[in-house]
Design a protein around this nucleic acid. Structure first.
Lengths: 125, 125
DNA sequence: TCGAACCCTCACATTGATGTGAAGGTCAAG
DNA sequence: CTTGACCTTCACATCAATGTGAGGGTTCGA
């Protein structure tokens, strides 16, 4: 598919698809006329990229992480340098910490909302 | 305490403490000489702010959320406008979505690492 | 009284993720 | 053949979170 379709199917501005490509997060073939030609797998891939970005990871980390997440399941582990493994461990722990923080604050917000709800629903309780 | 101590105790550059104040996330008294004077509660507050920022919330949202999270427990709900409640609900859901995404990807990274570990530990398995 | 270590404000620089638009090529349908 | 909807690259703009540093005051101990 061309960039317009991928843009629509992922809800992502064309500009960003080109940006992700520039950052090495996705690859695109080229049609004879120079247009980008995307494989269907890019729909999922872009969704994952956006999720990770939204989760706070910078593109340079995502670039490192993505190759590991795409493999269907346990296969070859060819180019896993020690530095990369260290980066991944670090990032995994950062993500865990982020999750903990997010959950804590999400729960606090939710509790607050529930409390207000209760207040409004049972003014005399 | 003055800004230097708060900076040390929170691991946050002074520059950012001033920025958070400028954004209305924290408040500081002033000593007679003009120096900022922070209440001890700001240590926790700054930690929370940084957590939320790191979780991807912009300061303008944090500013709205924070007042709700600081109350010790269920107390008065004075200035909870409907718009604010809507914002909070929206943000709560965004956070939940973010958590889901983060967990999914964190687990994927962790699985990958475990797999590589297994590979290295039991080369003949 | 001097220097070190604080603090202040102001303001410009940078970085990453984006928006926006110009100048132009491709292609299908009227 | 022209129009409109695509696509291309390039480049400058923006926004939030930060870095950095200038220029200057305060405080305290040697």
């Amino acid at each position: 598919m061309r960039i317009g379709e991928l843009s629509e199917r992922t809800g992502t501005p064309r500009r960003l698809l080109r940006y992700y490509e520039e950052q090495g997060l996705i690859v695109a073939d080229r049609l004879p006329n120079g247009y980008r030609d995307y494989d269907a797998s890019n729909v999922d891939r872009v969704a994952q990229i956006r999720g990770l970005l939204d989760a706070g990871l910078p593109t340079r980390i995502i670039k490192q992480i993505l190759p590991c997440l795409n493999k269907p399941r346990v296969i070859h582990f060819p180019d896993a340098t020690p530095e990369m493994l260290a980066t991944l461990e670090e990032e995994r722990d950062r993500m865990t910490e982020r999750i903990r923080c997010l959950v804590r604050n999400r729960d606090a917000v939710a509790e607050y909302l529930d409390a207000v709800r209760g207040e409004l629903a049972e003014p005399s309780a």
